[in-house]
């Protein structure tokens, strides 16, 4: 009975959504602010990747909110999982190939992650994408050698300081009598590595924060799971 009602509800929702969205002319978005941003962004922000201009410039506050959400989730997970007597993990050590493969891949993952972070204002990519690769780089050795403990305090400092520097870079604009998050470094030449004002700095902070946060989240979950 309950299943039937649920099924009916789902089908009804499917029908409503289809009717609603099929009425639109697909692929002809009105782009009211989108057009303005496309026209103004190379001048105003100076990043070749316009999505980055939006993420860190026009909608920078959303991005701050989003790293705050990730931080909140990591803190809350740490809070509810603490006191579970984590202890030593009992998974077996990885084999020879797994352990040495992980060691071998680690520097390359770091390199790729940092490259994606640093070039976020020029190419598709940026702090989040690169941050996830960095988190993977740190998490891989953990999978290969389950007995190795994670330094939560080091990760905590990295994420705390990276998040704080994101905010401080934004607040610095206040001392120049500008609004919060106004880019204040020189814009440079469009398309070069050192361009787009403060954006690359913000992305660097973001990448480190996301990387540290995801690594600590995964480590928390792995520790509890192992101590079953």
């Amino acid at each position: 009975m309950r299943k039937a009602a649920a099924l009916l509800f789902t089908l009804g929702l499917l029908f409503l959504l289809s009717v609603m969205f099929l009425r639109f002319e697909l692929g002809q978005a009105p782009m009211r602010i989108g057009k303005d941003i496309l026209a103004a962004a190379p001048e105003q922000v100076g990043a070749a990747n316009i999505v980055t201009s939006v993420v860190l410039g026009y909608r920078g506050l959303d991005t701050l909110g989003e790293i705050a959400i990730l931080f909140t989730a990591a803190t809350a997970t740490g809070l509810i999982l603490s006191g579970l007597g984590g202890g030593q993990r009992r998974d077996p050590e990885g084999g020879f190939i797994l352990r040495h493969g992980a060691d071998l891949v680690f520097p390359f993952l770091m390199l790729v992650g940092m490259y994606i972070v640093v070039h976020g204002h020029l190419t598709p990519g940026g702090g989040f994408q690169g941050g996830v690769v960095l988190a993977a780089a740190f998490f891989l050795p953990l999978l290969a050698r389950p007995s190795r403990a994670v330094s939560h305090s080091a990760l905590g400092w990295i994420e705390g300081l990276a998040g704080a520097s994101f905010i401080v870079i934004g607040l610095w604009a206040l001392t120049l009598d500008q609004a919060f998050m106004t880019p204040w470094l020189h814009q440079g030449v469009l398309g070069e590595l050192f361009s787009a004002g403060t954006l690359p700095l913000l992305y660097l902070a973001l990448g480190l924060k996301v990387g540290a946060e995801l690594a600590s989240l995964l480590a928390h979950l792995a520790e509890v799971e192992a101590s079953e």
């Binding site: 989108g34 999505v51 993420v55 959400i69 990591a74 997970t77 979950l221």
Partner: peptide, 24 residues
């Protein structure tokens, strides 16, 4: 339009955080 792409980037990260907390 770059704006929805930026919004979706935000929404995906939010989703990841919520899912991690839910698993915990």
């Amino acid at each position: 339009d770059p704006v929805p792409q930026a919004m979706v980037l935000t929404a995906i990260v939010i989703g990841v955080g919520v899912q991690a907390l839910a698993l915990g």
